[in-house]
Design a binder for these strands. Structure first.
Length: 936
RNA sequence: GCCGACGUGGCGGAAUUGGUAGACGCGCUGGAUUCAAAAUCCAGUUCAGGCAACUGAGUGGGGGUUCGAUUCCCCCCGUCGGUACCA
């Protein structure tokens, strides 16, 4: 009987569906286990072979946990709002909801094809009004809360208003954009607009002016990576920095908790480090600098207040609000020119380009109260508006960037730290002895920091402060395809929350998805929707991608609940995610926002856990091979890749070519042969007439190959459906695991799959006799057979527990090779083996299980028990090394003592030639492992 | 630039706590089976030298710790991910 995956897989899929095998209940006597995958964005290119990698791993783990007696939640859904669908709509006029639903349907079919044990009744879709009702609801809660730093907890905004009415800002410790101070009487006297402005300073969801990359021609805001060299990547239109009034979330209020709670998580150290670096806690001081001839004081944050005697100038971010005020008439022209330049630079450029030092002098001076000197005020692109206060006191002697800036513009440098006692210490190290620093002279740096902060506080010009690199998240998008804000404004622009019982606020229907004029979201076009009868207007921006994905894992717990984002019973049962599997590309963004939302819901008493994701496994990307042909733009010829050295790189361009046309793709000698060139010309008729230039004497037109993302635009997408069609889902699953460690990135190569396919046929054949009939022997297994079985149980179990699925597949191969060699056909061996393999190859396992005479699903079985007795060895093979180099191997009985081993080795005649007259200095015996003879 | 990860045969990778480097699979070579092919099976396969026994080298490069380093430490190179509006 041949192994026919196509028939088997279809049969068992139906069986599982009919018997509701994958249905998960929120009530169970079993312990719970929640396994979560990062849900996909349903792109138009469909699922490619890279997507399922993590899903397969988590599915294996889920099925394994079920066999071990857990009630396992393993759901799937779609991150359905996003830019690509909107761009597609702009190009084609197809409504994003329509294209998204079509893509979801395709994803669903592709996912089902792979035999995952998802409980599809819990599927979520972030663009579904029944879902985003709750995204909007959580947003409103953020809007209605402020963060009380005294109790480290979010509190209702009404309590803050009451406090203001009774005591003003007195006794308030709150996370805010800036520090405010007023009395109760002053509060009461304020207008509605003023009160709105003040509350925005405290709300966890608030509006403020922020800078964005604005592209006038495209009429839209661009992401940093859509901007290349100051112009838009699409079309090459100019991009400028523009201030816009936008919603933000006050994630900074939670910075300390986000940092501290990392400790208890079972995440990789690398991941925790990335998060903590992103939060970027630094301890230092806030200092106000007086400005000569002005009442203004410039606020700076510095981690090195000890170096304040060396602060010889100041640098403001070019966007700093006082730039124009502090610019003197003589400097006006220069400053304006510089601001024009900075406007064309993306934040990324400004941070990474450290060699090109740029700046402009404003003409004004601040006063360094410690040296008493006037210090010039500059602007420079290396100071970013949203980092700290957007202004730095520059200490060229102890900061690299300040140093480069001072050298370039010939500014004064005063050495304030003598590092001679600490050879090897760099400019940034907080080490050395203070010099040229008045009362600090002679002190060690750490002591000086303490004293200067005291002094700064005493002088009333600042105080010790903790600062975070983490910035509040901009939450507005001028786009159509996102959650509408449940916010309305009165004629004066005061923001009000919509009534919660009117949620969800549905997206209005539109014909045209292009941005509206004057930097407005497309929603501004839906005038009837925007303008309410009573004169109020709706917010026209929509929420960003991370809105829906910041809480979706909670919705799965109770996906259809109409009365809450999830019912309290369900949340109390499932608690949190035990295992979260997803890509490192989400290491900071998504994981940080989810943690923030979760903590907020925890403060509200709506979730019982402080952290959403207990354990995190990062899956590496499966990359594709990008093949391109080299085209000479002016000569309009294609150049074989090995000849490009003869041409100016500027005149050449790479044109991606479909990998199916390329011979030996991914290899050094990847090329187009005659047929390949013909296919290429048929595919891209615009190049029909172009000449192909070959290397002399060569018939192969070489292509350039590189490893990169699989994407529609690179024509290198490999669809799992095609692989499944040919080899079966079980083979695909095992092959993806076999490729290598889940965490590691690796290129896809379909060629190797034959090995796994051969293995599955071999495994299958163990259950059949020579007449190809299903046949098992009921005789008692030999010790040797039992050893193979129990070694495999041990290896596979250990490896699943440490998420090493590639070595599990190897273990199954090894076991099969050995059992076939032993001619084993015994039920007592093969039955446990089928259970063991069923998480990896669920259809194959089910088929064999039923053929063995069982009626219930193998996936409801109990995991085989390891018996260590069968693993005991009588003898150990010792490698014997001389000076660390292995020379011979010999068997010894397992219970030989170290002393006996040493004596036996010393006496071995075959070892003498390696000792070669030298003396044996030592013999190192590692019991059960190896023996090393040290000679010299 | 900054933060993080990775680098082992022709290829994907294994070596779990510092203890036989290359498990398992692909590919390749030779053979069996076949009219032939596919499929299957057997043997070999890190590199260099040698008919062989064997000898030497070898885990991106350089240095260090150790009886012993793919594994630990320092420096360098390369690739990938993130860098706040791609998802």
């Amino acid at each position: 009987m041949q192994y026919k995956p196509r028939d088997i897989e279809k049969k068992w899929k139906t069986f599982w569906e009919d018997k509701k095998i994958n249905k998960v209940s929120n009530q169970s006597d079993k312990p719970k286990f929640y396994v979560l995958d990062m849900f996909p964005y349903p792109s138009g290119a469909g699922l490619h072979v890279g997507h399922p990698l993590g899903y397969i791993a988590s599915d294996i783990y889920s099925r394994y946990k079920r066999l071990r007696g857990f009630n396992v939640l393993h759901p799937m859904g779609y991150d359905a709002f996003g830019l690509p669908a909107e761009q597609y709509a702009i190009q084609t006029g197809v409504h994003p909801a329509k294209s998204t639903d079509a893509n979801i349907e395709r994803y669903r079919a592709q996912l089902e094809n792979l035999g995952f044990s998802f409980d599809w009744d819990r599927q979520v879709k972030t663009s579904d009004p029944a879902y985003y009702k709750w995204t909007q609801w959580i947003f409103l809660q953020l809007f209605k809360h402020w963060y009380d730093t005294a109790v480290e907890k979010a509190r209702p905004i009404d309590e803050l208003i009451e406090h203001f009415a009774a005591h003003g800002t007195d006794g308030i410790e709150a996370a805010g954009s800036e520090e405010l101070s007023f009395t109760a009487a002053e509060w009461k006297a304020k207008s509605a607009v003023e009160k709105d402005g003040i509350l925005m300073n405290y709300r966890l969801a608030y509006r403020k002016e922020t800078y964005v990359n604005w592209c006038e021609t495209l009429g839209t805001v661009l992401a940093n990576d859509e901007v290349k060299d100051g112009v838009s990547e699409r079309g090459g239109y100019p991009v400028e920095r523009k201030a816009m009034l936008q919603w933000s979330l006050r994630i900074t209020a939670y910075a300390e908790r986000l940092l501290n709670d990392l400790q208890a998580l079972e995440w990789s150290e690398a991941m925790k480090k990335m998060q903590s670096n992103w939060i970027g806690k630094s301890v230092g001081a806030q200092v106000f600098f007086e400005i000569k001839g002005s009442d203004r004081k410039i606020e700076v944050f510095t981690t090195r207040p000890d170096t304040i005697f060396g602060a010889t100038y100041m640098v403001l971010a070019p966007e700093h609000e006082w730039v124009s005020e502090l610019t003197t008439p003589e400097q006006k022209e220069e400053v304006a020119a510089y601001l024009d330049y900075v406007n064309t630079r993306s934040e990324r450029d400004r941070m990474s380009d450290v060699k090109a030092v740029t700046g402009a002098f404003l003409g004004s001076y601040a006063i360094n109260q410690f040296t008493g000197e006037d210090i010039p005020i500059w602007i420079g692109e290396y100071v970013l508006k949203d980092y700290g206060t957007g202004a730095v006191m520059a200490v060229p002697s102890d900061d690299d960037r300040d140093h480069r800036f001072a050298e370039k513009f010939d500014l004064k440098i005063i050495d304030v730290i003598d590092k001679s006692k600490y050879p090897g210490a760099g400019r940034h190290d907080k080490l050395g002895i203070m010099i040229n620093s008045g009362f600090l002279n002679g002190m060690e740096v750490p002591d000086a920091i303490g004293l200067i902060i005291e002094k700064i506080e005493e002088m009333g010009i600042g105080r010790g402060q903790v600062n975070y690199k983490l910035r509040d998240a901009i939450y507005s998008r001028q786009r159509y395809w996102g959650e509408p804000f449940p916010i309305i404004y009165d004629q004066e622009g005061v923001a009000y929350a919509m009534d919660e019982k009117d949620l969800p606020l549905d997206l209005p229907e539109l014909e045209d998805f292009k941005p509206a004029s004057a930097a407005k979201s497309p929603l501004a076009r839906a005038e009837e929707w925007v303008n309410l009868p009573d004169g109020y207007t709706r917010e026209t921006d929509t929420m960003p991608g991370f809105a829906g994905s910041s809480w979706y894992f909670l919705r799965y717990m109770d996906a259809k609940n109409p009365d809450a984002f999830a019912g309290q019973d369900a949340i109390n049962y499932w608690q949190d995610v035990d295992l979260y599997v997803g890509g490192t590309e989400h290491a900071v963004g998504h994981l940080m926002y989810s943690r923030f939302w979760h903590k907020f819901l925890f403060d509200k008493g709506l979730v019982p856990t402080k952290e959403p994701f207990r354990k995190l496994i990062n899956q590496g990307m499966i990359q594709g091979i990008i093949e391109s042909v080299i085209y000479h733009k002016e000569k309009r010829k294609f150049i074989s890749a090995e000849l490009t050295g003869n041409y100016d790189e500027e005149s050449l361009t790479e044109i991606p070519v479909h990998i199916n046309f390329v011979k030996d793709y991914g290899l050094d000698h990847s090329h187009l042969d005659e047929a390949g060139i013909r296919k290429f010309k048929e595919w891209r008729p615009e190049y029909d007439k172009a000449e192909f230039v070959f290397a002399e004497g060569s018939k192969q037109f070489k292509t350039r190959s590189e490893i990169g993302k699989m994407s529609k635009s690179k024509f290198n997408v490999v669809n799992p459906d095609d692989v499944v069609e040919r080899y079966g889902a079980d083979c695909f699953r095992m092959y993806e695991m076999f490729l290598g460690p889940v965490e590691q990135a690796k290129p896809w190569d379909t060629k190797g799959i034959d090995g796994v396919s051969r293995f599955l046929r071999k495994f299958w054949s163990m259950f059949f006799n020579k007449q190809e009939q299903f046949s098992l022997s009921e005789t008692t297994p030999t010790r040797e057979e039992l050893k193979v079985l129990h070694q495999t149980i041990k290896k596979v179990t250990d490896d699943i527990e440490r998420f090493s699925f590639n070595t599990c597949v190897s273990a199954f191969m090894v076991a099969t090779n050995e059992l076939v060699k032993l001619g084993c056909d015994k039920r007592d061996i093969l039955e446990p083996l089928v259970i063991l393999i069923s998480p990896f190859a669920p259809h194959l396992g089910e088929e064999l299980w039923h053929r063995m005479g069982h009626n219930d699903s193998v996936h409801r079985e109990t995991y085989p028990v390891l018996n260590e007795e069968y693993l005991v060895e009588d003898s150990v093979t010792y490698p014997i090394a001389v000076n660390g180099k292995t020379r011979i191997t010999t068997d010894f009985p397992s219970d030989t003592s170290n002393k006996d081993l040493e004596n036996a080795v010393r006496a071995m005649p075959e070892l003498q030639k390696y000792i070669d007259g030298k003396t044996i200095r030592r013999v190192i015996v590692v019991p059960g492992r190896m023996i090393n003879v040290v000679v010299g």
